[in-house]
Amino acid sequence: MALTKEQIAQRIARELQDGFYVNLGIGIPTLVANYIPEGIDVVLQSENGLLGMGPFPLEGEEDADLINAGKQTITTIPGSSFFDSAVSFGMIRAGKVDLTVLGAMEVSELGDIANWKIPGKMVKGMGGAMDLVASARNIIVAMMHTNPKGQSKLLPACTLPLTGVKCVKKIVSDLAVLDILPEGGFLLRETAPGVSVDEIKQKTAGRLLVADDVKPMEF
């Protein structure tokens, strides 16, 4: 069975390490905050100017001046700080953020990522994604392995306008966990429960290698 969006987030949350500063993108990455493992303290950075993002507010306690990068109402936690957008991207550019999790439309076997534009169809803009991928020390992509037509989104080369080049280190898709090798290629590490290595091979258009110790994910 392919993973649900929640399970993708849950699997990514296992990559968090104690003390990490983490930037979570919009969509599935936001859900990672719900699965931070016991005993692991991470600080969430929201690029519109907040370090130490708390949960959504209770009804009636929403504050129009307090939102995350997805424009959702949020809260602070003890130890939070506010800052302007230049300071925020200073943190990002200077490599202070330990981990960035974001979504993608396509990822190439070299670690290139496309997630901001479909020419002629969808042009919303890159927001902070280009800054994040250009500077993050570690980038995990949360994505569906194929598009609704069943075509692979893990490609030899991206076909859509790029967000960044040679930057993605790891992908957690609905079918698999894959590392991107420094010399290029997707290395299959884990499979979704009940999904075969053959199915993943068939649904990965880019160069796929299978780790000797490939194993199914457990939930």
Partner: peptide, 13 residues
């Protein structure tokens, strides 16, 4: 329309 990265926008300001 000129779309530019958010950090670039902030830093050009």
């Amino acid at each position: 329309v000129e779309l530019i990265p958010q950090g670039t926008l902030a830093t050009r300001c």
